[in-house]
Amino acid sequence: MTLTYTGCPARKMLLSDVQSAVSGVDGVEECDVRLVWSPEWSIEFITDDGANALEAFGVSVP
């Protein structure tokens, strides 16, 4: 996974959230989350679901 920006203060929390979400999926025995910086995150990475969730929060995705 990656983060939107390098200084993200929620890094630990997001990593562990992803770790536990993936670990909780049926059939997953082991999970190792790796943080990568390349490719760099960009707005195109936002999925339709993500865009809808942001929209509901009041942020429009161009």
């Binding site: 920006y5 390098t6 990568v36 910086w37 390349s38 490719p39 760099e40 995150w41």
Partner: peptide, 11 residues
């Protein structure tokens, strides 16, 4: 090293 350069340069 190289896989970090793009992100940092952008910022």
């Amino acid at each position: 090293i190289t896989d970090r350069i793009g992100k940092i340069t952008e910022e």
